[in-house]
Simulated assay, not measured.
Amino acid sequence: MEELVRELDEHGFIPLDGLVPEPVLEVMRRGCDDLIGRTRRMRHSTQGWQLEAEGEGGGWAARAAGRAGIPGKVRVVGRAHEHSPELAEVPELLGLNEHVVEPLHGLRGDFYNSYLWAKPSEVGSEKPWHQDALFLAEEFYETYEDVFTIWIAVDDAREDNGCLRFLPGSHRGQVLQDPHGIDRDDLFASPREPSLDIDRLWPDLTPVTLPRHAGSAVLFGAFTAHTSSANTTEDQRRAVSYVYSLPRRGTAGGGR
Rank of each mutant, 00 (worst) to 15 (best):
H105D: 07
D17A: 13
V100L: 15
V208L: 09
S241Y: 07
R165I: 02
H180M: 09
E234P: 00
E126I: 12
G58F: 04
G169C: 02
V147K: 01
W202P: 01
G69N: 08
L94D: 06
S195V: 02
P194L: 11
L107W: 04
V74C: 11
R43S: 12
G58N: 02
R6T: 09
A133R: 10
N97Y: 03
D155A: 07
V24Y: 02
K127D: 01
T39G: 07
L35Q: 08
R79A: 09
Y112S: 13
D34M: 13
Q131A: 09
L104E: 07
R63A: 12
K73Y: 05
D110L: 04
T251L: 13
Y244N: 04
Y141W: 09
A157L: 14
V175H: 14
I36T: 14
S229M: 10
P128E: 01
D34N: 10
P194W: 11
F188K: 07
A157Q: 11
P211G: 00
D235I: 00
L107F: 00
R108A: 15
I182Q: 06
R248V: 14
H171F: 04
L176S: 06
H99R: 15
G66T: 02
R75C: 04
L164F: 10
V90D: 13
T143N: 10
M1F: 11
W117I: 14
F220Y: 13
V90E: 14
A133C: 03
E138T: 08
V24C: 05
V100A: 01
R172A: 11
L87R: 04
P179T: 05
H11Y: 14
V240W: 00
N97G: 06
R30C: 00
H171Q: 15
C32N: 10
V208P: 03
V77I: 15
G72D: 08
L210H: 01
T143F: 15
S114L: 09
E2D: 15
A230R: 12
D110Q: 08
T46M: 09
G254R: 15
V5A: 15
R158D: 03
P211D: 06
E138S: 11
P71H: 08
T224I: 10
V90W: 12
T251V: 14
A153H: 01
R165G: 02
E56W: 02
T209F: 00
L19P: 06
E52M: 08
A61T: 04
E54T: 12
M42A: 13
L104C: 04
L96K: 05
T224H: 07
H130V: 03
V175T: 12
I70F: 08
E193N: 02
L51C: 11
A61E: 06
D34V: 13
G173W: 07
F223M: 12
Y144G: 02
R184W: 12
D235W: 09
H105F: 03
G124M: 03
E3H: 06
W202Y: 15
M42V: 02
A137C: 01
G72Y: 07
R212A: 15
R63M: 14
R200G: 15
Y141H: 00
L87E: 06
V218H: 05
D34Y: 11
D235F: 09
R200A: 15
